[in-house]
Design a protein around this nucleic acid. Structure first.
Lengths: 200, 200
DNA sequence: GCGTTGCGAAACTCAACCGTATCGAAATTT
DNA sequence: AAATTTCGATACGGTTGAGTTTCGCAACGC
């Protein structure tokens, strides 16, 4: 309470290194991003990559799942500003964020956990869902509802189904599209195709 | 050559148990279907579940990947007969197979490997792709091409994109839809929504 | 300076699993 | 009957990683 006044009295002794903590989380995200699954992620590998003793990890997190959960908490879903001019335009903006991120390491990390390990680590998945999925879902819901209200979309539109179509299509591409299919106009093509429908 | 005449002369000694082999493969598929990834799949767990000695496994397959590859070879993509009356009807039939299978162990097995392990076991994934994905893909391509030719669909339809939309939407549901969303009319709703488009 | 706490490094115990070897019993050919 | 091969079971040595402990040093408050 005397010097730095951080609100709570600093406990005696050497303070925990903020740098070490960041290095640990960074190493964890890197490894998961490189395709290492949560189950085969080893604390020792994380410690080695972070240049840190295992002690330093266990002092902060009691187990692997706890650590990964906190690492995921550092991820943020970058929500683009929506122009709000047309539903079509906003949907393209939202989907294009997914496309752009599809090649990023962090995103692959996210996808791998969400897709493959959601069954086995439900608590982990839940945390991640709230952080990375929910904000985007909410944004898209609002765009679709707006379109339904102002006549851009069918008045009887099934919003949940529409979301599954849009997101599912982009998911399909990011997972199996390879580099070649993630062209700059992909989001636009998806949205147009989905809005217009396939029927003649 | 004397008795059962199987074409090639039977080597002396006790013949390999067909039952054991089936049990091993069955156990492998079960485990993968339950969400055990290939990397954490253990020969010991397979042997225990199959009620078999490890020797019996190693006598047939030299390593884990080899075993899994052979196990996958036992999977078949059940292709429904297509009525061929309308594109809409055939698409519903195709998608409804996915929906029906969504809860089956075999299908979960397929999904888990396809989604999570395609990066790390490309050779495995390739084998699996030919067996489980390609036949369905081909069937759907034909339906869509037919529709484009006979005027049911837009003449300038992007078939690849249309497939991504249809399959991606169903994938989204099977992975995240939970039990509640996989209703009997799901395939129909998807196809209708996609064919008509979302726009007013 | 002193007590306290965090640090990285290393050693440790414990468990799982790999791949191999060995065993007695069973199945099949000769 | 004899020879051969597989069977399930069990044991073995080796590797990996979890989670704990210990050590000497560093950083902080008093």
């Amino acid at each position: 309470m005397t010097t730095t006044e951080t609100g709570t009295a600093r406990p005696a002794g050497r303070p925990r290194s903020e740098k070490a903590e960041k290095a640990i989380i960074e190493a964890t995200l890197e490894l998961v991003g490189e395709g290492v699954s949560v189950s085969e992620l080893s604390i020792e590998a994380i410690a080695a990559r972070a240049g840190v003793g295992k002690t330093t990890i266990y002092r902060r997190w009691s187990n692997k799942e706890d650590l990964v959960a906190h690492a995921l908490a550092k991820l943020k879903a970058p929500l683009p500003p929506l122009a709000g001019v047309s539903v079509r335009e906003d949907l393209i903006t939202l989907l294009d964020v997914m496309r752009t991120e599809a090649g990023h390491v962090r995103t692959r990390c996210v996808m791998n956990i969400a897709l493959s390990e959601s069954d086995r680590y439900p608590q982990l998945f839940e945390k991640f869902r709230m952080l990375a999925i929910e904000p985007r879902r909410q944004a898209m819901v609002e765009v679709l509802e707006r379109g339904r209200a102002n006549g851009e979309l069918r008045p009887d539109l099934d919003v949940a189904l529409a979301m599954a179509i849009l997101n599912g299509t982009m998911l399909w591409h990011t997972k199996w599209g390879g580099e070649g299919l993630l062209t700059a106009d992909l989001a636009e093509r998806i949205v147009d195709q989905v809005l217009q429908g396939l029927a003649a």
